[in-house]
Nucleic acid binder design. Structure first.
Lengths: 132, 132
DNA sequence: TACATAATGTTATATTATAACAATTTTAAT
DNA sequence: ATTAAAATTGTTATAATATAACATTATGTA
């Protein structure tokens, strides 16, 4: 489970929107959605997003500049993330596969770098879109 | 080896700059560098970048919005990419590890998605920066 | 209380990327 | 060589993503 962070008002508003969304949300789409709640400026959104990413409640899908709630009850922070992305319908799913995460967390390359974090994005077609 | 693509003038100019750079370059930094060669507009840069990515001559480092020349003589196109990124000095290296690429290319998750592509970015400290 | 830290609000601006359209060059088939 | 299609280029404008800087307010904690 996530360590409990007491989210602030803005953080909670923005987390709720992302958490309820079936698809990753972009910062300005979030901004548009929260203007009725008094959050008026991009920076207010970005600050909340930064914090939510930092504490592992959401992840950024780098290839899409969009944010998704963490689906993975066993991850405390966002140090090891993997996603599958359908290039047709843009559905994004967080992959929770212990074989994969073990393999990647233990990966060492010849350059001798010490890795503390990784992000993996798979692209392809989801079941629904394959049959179309 | 790469399939030979005869690069156009703009593509060649922009590829050369990226290829000679020891670090990933951002689009507007490239633009600044090629203005003396007659490339004046962002779109000219982005179009060349898009094409170079498409044919596998360069890769985009998604977490940095920057571009690096392909270091991997065995990759035809950019369907299976992995990078190590030093969070201190920002050095980026393309990982060429057949065990890793086999593992990821064969990866199937329970959702049954058919993957045609992946991108993996490792973050940490490079040898030099660890000892600092 | 009072200090430090974190979060907020606000304006302005920086950075990254694409739309739309016209013109030119290249390719490949006749 | 001719020509039609496809790719590339040039250009202006604008959209989309993200941060700087600074003043203020709220929260945690000694």
């Amino acid at each position: 489970m996530h360590k409990e962070h007491n989210l602030t008002k803005n953080q909670q508003i923005i987390f709720d929107i992302i958490d309820r969304s079936p698809e990753p949300l972009k910062a300005y789409s979030i901004l548009f959605n929260v203007q009725k709640k008094g959050i008026k400026a991009p920076l207010q959104v970005y600050r909340a997003l930064d914090k939510l990413v930092e504490i592992g409640k959401i992840h950024k899908i780098e290839s899409r500049n969009a944010f998704i709630a963490c689906q993975n009850s066993s991850c405390q922070v966002s140090k090891a993330t993997a996603f599958s992305i359908c290039e047709s319908c843009e559905k994004v799913t967080e992959i929770n596969n212990s074989s994969l995460s073990k393999y990647l967390s233990n990966f060492k390359d010849k350059a001798g770098m010490k890795y503390s974090k990784y992000n993996l994005e798979f692209f392809g077609l989801c079941k629904k879109c394959i049959t179309k």
